[in-house]
Amino acid sequence: MLELIAAVRSDGTTGDTGDDEDERSGRSRWERLRQSDFVRSAPFWGPPFLLMGFFVYAAIGWNFLLSLTDYERFQGPDYSNLDFGMYRRMLDDPTFWEATQNTLILLIVFTVACLVAGLLLAILLDREVRFGRGFRTIYLLPMSLSFIVTAQFWKWMYNSQFGIINEFFGLFGLGPYGWLSNPDLVLFSVIFALVWQFSGYTMIVYLAALRAIPQDQYEAARVDGASTLKLYWRVIIPQLKPAMVSASVVLLLFSLKAFDFLFALFDGYQPRKGADILSTMMVREAFARSQWAYSSAIAIVLFLLSLAVIAPYLYQQHRQGNL
């Protein structure tokens, strides 16, 4: 803001010749600036702007600074010696690579599964089924539950001895499976539970978009000779693209910070082998092992991943004039 004022002032003086004029014009510029919408609206946008700047952007900046130090345990950060040592440590850390790999698997499988499941539910519900409203509420309900609750619930479901899922497979003489203990299965057990919780959300987003498509689109396609499958594939689903994009952004961002569900599911900072992701690793390094600088570096990596998700979306929205 100060820069801007300075810019306006200097601009105000350049064109003028005489000193008096200079002064007068400068004052009137100052006066005009004081009357401008920008300044007069400042009391409204200023405070939230400052709060956001301090608590979000300054915190991110400070976090980056921390990641350049060697801060660990209780000795306090030393800002005199900044380097990328923590990032080099990351590259040599097999735990980090495993967590990154798991994060990407979660990111992709969870998002795609949610989009597909939500789409199928939305299409079924859109076909004027009996009790459609009831189903809609039922499907959306998991979304309203706390992750602590659903994690506890899935822990029971997945229990290798008494869990209802193993009981079910037992009926066919299969299992028991270690849904949460087998390193090959555990990540997909987590993804399945999260899809269960989130597909109601994608369903609602799709349903709203489906309801916005006029009935005569369906009718025109039918008269044009399209089968039901082709009708959805070629006419309806392409029109759901904006809904798909916005739902994907929400799901991708969520999967990057899916910490609380895992924390509750595994009762602590250390998920079972095969289910560690960057966010759990970040919290563990900080609060279980007091590796503050290393944890900050992981946080920066997560931040960059989030940015990679949201930046294209914001750019596209900006280009379409929605922002």
Binding site: E219, V223, G225, A226, S227
Partner: peptide
């Protein structure tokens, strides 16, 4: 409808 050979 799709098999009726009509256009609307």
């Amino acid at each position: 409808a799709k098999d009726r050979d009509i256009a609307m």
